[in-house]
Design a protein around this nucleic acid. Structure first.
Lengths: 199, 199
DNA sequence: TGATCTTGCGAACGACCGTTCGTATATTCA
DNA sequence: TGAATATACGAACGGTCGTTCGCAAGATCA
């Protein structure tokens, strides 16, 4: 790995960490340069614009998310076990603080850029749409495996799963509710139960 | 109403509108002054600091939310009818664009300030905790009225309702999913059904 | 109407923003 | 090792930020 790539990677890690608590609007080239003990212009040169930095951060976050949530879940048997693994991994991703002290960057950024047109919004929207499609596809597989009810709407399943995870961030990060994790587990267990056959 | 209060009110309306799309970090005194065709210092004098402006915006949003969602719902019969009214009003609040083009400011701001310590975070957190308590209390009343199952956890009900509404903003604002409203209605109907007696 | 208090303005402050550019120093590879 | 290239720096740019302050014009009410 060349020196440049190494620096770039360090910048992205620092940026990801900062973005998880401050959002894109809360970070600046100068602040990242300070934290990494390098010059503004030196850091800037790696991306050419702040917007390009933001796109790179999104890309990096996407890869980390997939590696932490989706890839290990794929190793589980198709259907319900895999979906349960996704939920566990996704929760861990949302809760673990190493490298992302503010929690899931996607939920942070979704709220920040959802009504701000531009390439950053487009990129995030597309990534998130793909993730919802992945969730729905996993539910579809669970139907085919005979785990979930044949009349279940896989996209509706994805919608409700997303809601449970979003409420987790809200209860835990904003409300500081100690029961947040428990509530999301309860909600998901319930979603699983009513989605499964022999309900 | 004195001249000052009238101006202050106009500022808060403009700020609320801007915040719903840009967040607190995306608005500035200068930008609001431009939109209202007044000077920065003139606008600034009404609040004394940006943080005070932010607190005033939160207060204003809280009053509007209560007037639009809670107050009309209180007129409905206790229990399930009132909860259904809350959901309808809350959805309308989240969808209506007049005065808040970016959608529900609370969801925007929750994500923005959830990990940013300070009086603004404290104020928002407290408001939102009260709202969750109100939801839970409404579910409790529905139990007492015999509409909801006696073994239902009212706070769990509030948690899941919050999740459904948060997913609505995400699906509609970020993903631009046309079926967003439909999905949230489906999810809530399902939540109602499994919370009610004789399920 | 006249005096008082309220409201708003313009200019300026230091700080930071993203970005540009010429230059120096490392790294890379023949 | 030497030449070519990749990487980082420092200084500076025009702009915008929140905030301060003294002063003028406005509203308010005796």
């Amino acid at each position: 790995m060349s020196k440049g790539r190494k620096t770039r990677s360090a910048i992205l890690s620092e940026a990801l960490s900062a973005v998880s608590t401050e959002g894109f609007q809360g970070i600046s080239i100068g602040m990242l340069a300070d934290r990494l003990k390098m010059s503004k212009s030196g850091l800037f040169a790696h991306f050419g614009s702040k917007e390009e930095l933001e796109k790179a951060v999104l890309e990096e976050a996407g890869q980390r998310f997939m590696a932490a949530v989706w890839t290990p879940a794929k190793a589980f048997p198709r259907g319900r076990p895999r979906i349960e693994a996704i939920f566990r991994n996704w929760m861990d991703w949302s809760l673990h603080t190493d490298g992302m002290p503010g929690g899931c960057v996607f939920m942070k950024l979704s709220a920040e850029v959802d009504e701000k047109p531009g390439p950053v919004r487009d990129q995030l929207s597309e990534m998130q749409a793909r993730w919802q499609a992945t969730l729905a596809r996993s539910a579809q597989i669970a139907i085919e495996e005979g785990h979930f009810r044949p009349d279940l709407d896989p996209r509706q399943f994805a919608y409700e799963m997303q809601g449970i995870l979003m409420a987790l961030k809200y209860y835990r990060r904003l409300l500081r509710d100690e029961k947040a994790v428990e509530r999301s587990q309860q909600a998901f267990a319930d979603l699983l139960a009513r989605s499964s056959v022999r309900h």
